[in-house]
């Protein structure tokens, strides 16, 4: 029941690769609490790892906010990755699989979108990047 538990949002500073590890651990424990299957936990933690690394590497650091989510009797986990970095000028391009071309952010964003159930990208040149993903228990 949504009303029974106070929604608490946990926040993690993403300022280096130690933050990425911490983000993975927090997401894992939230995913377990939300009752995600082992495969879905793995998908969510992997997506979080990709997005957290993007925040550190391309966003120049930022934060992850994580919380439990409910909808239509299903439980899940909602994650927000936010940075004040240069933003992404060409979203279409950033969401194209391009990892083999090396270096670029191709797999991180597009892969994370495939691994999550919901994906929202809010960015633009010069105004930072906010990525929200949700994964629901089946």
């Amino acid at each position: 029941m949504p009303g029974d538990t106070a929604r608490r949002t946990e926040s993690i500073e993403l300022d280096g690769s130690a933050g990425v590890v911490k983000a993975r651990q927090l997401v894992r424990s939230l995913a377990q609490e939300a009752g995600l299957s082992l495969v879905d936990q793995t998908k969510l933690v992997t997506a979080a790892s990709e997005l957290a690394r993007n925040t550190v590497v391309y966003g120049g650091g930022g934060r992850m906010e994580a919380e439990a989510a409910w909808s239509n009797g299903r439980s899940g986990v909602r994650l927000l990755f936010a940075d004040e970095g240069p933003g992404i000028p060409d979203v279409e391009l950033a969401l194209t699989d391009g990892w083999t071309t090396g270096g670029g952010m191709g797999l991180g964003l597009s892969g994370a979108r495939r691994l999550a159930d919901e994906f929202d990208l809010d960015t633009g040149e010069g105004r930072g990047t906010r990525v929200t993903i949700v994964k629901w228990a089946r």
Binding site: L38, V39, T42, L107, G111
Partner: peptide, 14 residues
């Protein structure tokens, strides 16, 4: 490699 990891990697595109 664990099954869940393999499934996730395929979905990720690796």
């Amino acid at each position: 490699m664990r099954p869940a990891v393999a499934i996730t990697l395929v979905e990720l595109g690796l």
